[in-house]
């Protein structure tokens, strides 16, 4: 039953965005998150929406799928909106008991909601269009540029690769253990949450012990294949930028310039950042 699970939320279709170098997408996402905080009027936000909309259209991923990720943080958005509506000082429009709604509060809340939504969609667009393996590769390369993290870059990405590699294996094993326990009369379906959680213990214990044994054997097999960390290690596939990556970087730069420029437009600002 666990045979064909997809890890992460990767959405495998053909598109220009999917084909970009993972580094390009990581850098873009990073820049996008930061630049969103520079937008302080509706032109800036409109630009943010426009650029993201353009990328979504290019990525061939159905809108419904893209918005799924927003659902997960809907509550956080709601809380932010409510807080902003009631706590921001300004011209009072409406009073409900001790609470007051202000004009600045409404505007702030609206912008906050948009900003959070853009942040979430922006980052999930990266994971939707990049396979976990490519993402791991890209992160390793990106981390190698940052001083301080540089020396761990390879180890961290190796850990991630191994985790990805063993998720299906461990799922299969969990399935097997569960069936074995069921065959001996274990009950995983009935009872309250507490009882169900308790029933998981006899699955987790053998799974844990098994994975320690696996880790031990894998370490030995890796050593036997001359693994000695990231030093002097080469790669079958070295990441390489192509023309589309250059275009993507130019688009990123244009976006940054435009959003920063929009700050200086003589327009109404968002009252409180």
């Amino acid at each position: 039953m666990f045979k064909d699970i997809t890890i992460g939320q990767y959405y495998p279709v053909q598109s220009k965005i999917h084909d970009l170098d993972p580094r390009t997408k990581i850098v873009y996402t990073f820049v996008y998150i930061i630049i969103l905080f520079f937008a302080n009027n509706y032109v800036g936000y409109a630009l943010g929406v426009a650029f993201l909309g353009f990328l979504i259209a290019m990525s061939n991923i159905p809108l419904k799928f893209v918005f799924k990720s927003v659902k997960a943080i809907l509550i956080i958005i709601l809380i932010t909106v409510i807080l902003n509506v009631f706590v921001t000082p300004g011209n009072v429009l409406l009073r409900i008991g001790a609470l007051k709604v202000t004009d600045a509060g409404l505007i702030n809340a609206a912008f906050m909601a948009i900003r959070l939504t853009l942040l979430i969609i922006g980052t999930s667009l990266m994971t939707l269009t990049t396979s976990p393996i490519a993402l791991t590769d890209g992160m390793e390369y990106c981390m190698k540029v940052i001083p301080g993290v540089r020396s761990y870059a390879h180890e961290l990405s190796m850990m991630m690769t191994i985790a990805l590699r063993f998720i299906p294996t461990l799922m299969e094993e969990a399935d097997k253990i569960m069936k074995a326990q069921k065959a001996r009369g274990a009950d995983f379906e009935t009872g309250g949450i507490l009882k169900k959680a308790k029933n998981i213990v006899p699955i987790l214990v053998p799974l844990f012990i098994g994975s320690f044994k696996r880790a031990d054997e894998l370490a030995m097999a890796m050593e036997a294949r001359c693994y000695r960390g990231g030093n002097n290690r080469t790669r079958l596939y070295e990441l390489e930028y192509d023309k589309n990556d250059k275009i993507a970087y130019i688009i990123t730069a244009v976006m940054v310039a435009m959003i920063i420029a929009s700050r200086f437009l003589p327009l109404m600002r968002i009252p409180i950042q």
Binding site: P132, I133, T161, I162, L164, R165, T169, R214, E217, L218, M220, A221, M222, A224, R225, Y227
Partner: peptide, 13 residues
């Protein structure tokens, strides 16, 4: 060296 358990010596995805 090739070990016994095929699952525990394959590293990559």
């Amino acid at each position: 060296i090739v070990f016994q358990n095929p699952d525990n010596q394959i590293v990559a995805t």
